[in-house]
Amino acid sequence: MAAIEVRDLHKHYGDNHAVRGVSFDVEPGEVYALLGHNGAGKSTVVEILEGHRMASSGEVSVLGFDPAAAAREFRDRIGVVLQTSGVENEFTVREVLDLYSSAYRTPRPLDDVLALTGLEAKADERVGSLSGGQRRRVDLALGIVGAPDLLFLDEPTTGFDPSARRLSWDLVEQLCADGTTVLLTTHYLDEAEHLADRVGVLGDGVMIAEGTPSALIDGISGTVVSFQLPESIETTDAVSTFGAVMDAEVRLSGRLVEATVERSTSVVHRLTGWAVEHNIELLGLSVTRASLEDVYLQLTAAPNGESS
């Protein structure tokens, strides 16, 4: 039996049809990442699976339970790391963990939780005195304190510094080794690529692609050509100038010019020819295989600078 089964899930908020017929399965022990920009419906889907929202229609089964019934048995077996959720600031990390763990049947030993989340040194400090990243670790710690079979991670590393992100990735990997199923939503494509066994991409409430990260990347069979925008070209002209030179759809993020192309050799040939002709040095010119990010950008076709 799948850990999560979703069939033709719909959710209306008044006139807003936020989720429109989403179906997917997550197998036991799998790490499944839901991607999509803000408003794509991923948090709504996750909150329905957690039992915090009612579906408008469709079938949902999580660990064999109907999450809408919010049975105690169900909540004992899931761990939830919500996107924004406070913790009792006036309590120490250890007190908070101890308090929340008392609700579960078989809590994970607190020292294990502290070690897994790298909070040993902060155990006796009040939550209110911690930095944003450290608090997010407390969120993670509270998510796993009940030793869940299924862990929901709603943008778990937003606000983390790079080392904290690595640490939480290690944590997810360790949990998977124990057989914990993980449903992850994230804005970081590298996070999904690194952690997820499979990825589902949501756009406007519809599942627009699903598969392993490498299958999705192979699917677009593109190569990414990128370089720094030369000083002599205005940012406003960049897309039209290089679009014409490369004969491809060009994206500009900051001063990075990018295009995902089919025939990179000829594109690079035209591009470098143009650069030599205009006596322009293309800093950081690189030709790489497409990443999940490129897949995502193609699929969701978010306007430049608004993808998130």
Binding site: E50, G51, H52, A70, R72, E73, R75, D76, I78, V80, L82, T84, S85, G86, V87, E88, Y100, A103, Y104, R105, L142, G146
Partner: peptide
């Protein structure tokens, strides 16, 4: 205040009745 902070929702996610 606890409700705005999400503390009530967090407890709602645990098996605490």
């Amino acid at each position: 205040i606890r409700r705005d902070e999400g503390i009530l929702k967090r407890w709602r996610s645990t098996p605490l009745p």
